[in-house]
Design a protein around this nucleic acid. Structure first.
Lengths: 132, 132
DNA sequence: TGCAGATGTTAGGCAAGCCTTACTTTTTGA
DNA sequence: TCAAAAAGTAAGGCTTGCCTAACATCTGCA
């Protein structure tokens, strides 16, 4: 879980939307509703609704009929999600020897529920113990 | 996730109910609705509903106004959940050095989403690598 | 320049999952 | 034997997350 403004957690689903926005938006480009919808395999309406929630939390900004942009806080949150995802997957693959595709799926699930403490220790463990 | 009759997955919540039943039911004692409710901090109505779903899936049996019993399949499923829980927690504590209570919470979350493959590898890793 | 098609938004709805309150029925033990 | 405790039922609410249909806006190009 990642915290937004006021420390409120966002749902796994919202984290996925946030991640998608970051991946689709370049350095200072925005991400389009349609592209997010395609990437996540959901309707544009669902994306729109999710974007509304992310705006509420101060993680993205948008103007009507325009692309959405990550706020600084949103960027931080999205990067945190990504970092967790990568670290988890890397752990699963390189330490546990899990199959790439299974690791990807598991990382997707676990990244949404694991605590900050555990993530930090995991990253630490990988760096000191087993290399990356 | 654990599979019941016909391989259907059961929800995290149902897994928790199943776990509670196993912990409350002795060797061949049953577990009482009230005790399950207290342990999980939910109403008896919720327990009753959940028990109905577990009966549907062939994981427990019960007679009206009596305690519930795990079926063999239910026992297997519950033990699998427990084993995952213990292994995860043990990993978090002894390998990552996570605080006991945080580990407990994280294990609770992760145990519901992690794949069989990853669990198996994790157990394997702990046995060969770091001792228990 | 104005319209067609792409894009975005709104409104309304549905299903799953989980829980509650209030009530009825059964059991049990003083 | 009868009241309290336990179990079960009925009815319903909330949240999350998704959808479709219909509508609004924008934009490129003939």
């Amino acid at each position: 879980m990642v915290t937004g403004r006021s420390g409120a957690k966002i749902s796994p689903s919202l984290e996925d939307y946030l991640e998608a926005v970051m991946e689709l938006a370049g350095a200072d480009e925005g991400a389009r509703t349609t592209d997010v919808a395609i990437r996540l395999g959901v309707s544009k309406a669902s994306v729109n609704q999710a974007m509304g929630l992310l705006v509420d939390r101060g993680l993205i900004s948008r103007e009507k009929y325009g692309p959405v942009y990550l706020t600084q806080e949103g960027r931080n949150a999205a990067q945190a999600v990504c970092r967790r995802h990568r670290a988890l997957k890397s752990f699963l693959v390189s330490v546990l020897g899990i199959d790439e595709s299974v690791a990807e799926e598991d990382a997707c699930q676990i990244e949404h529920v694991v605590s900050k403490e555990t993530m930090a220790s995991l990253i630490d463990f990988m760096e000191r113990g087993t290399g990356r």
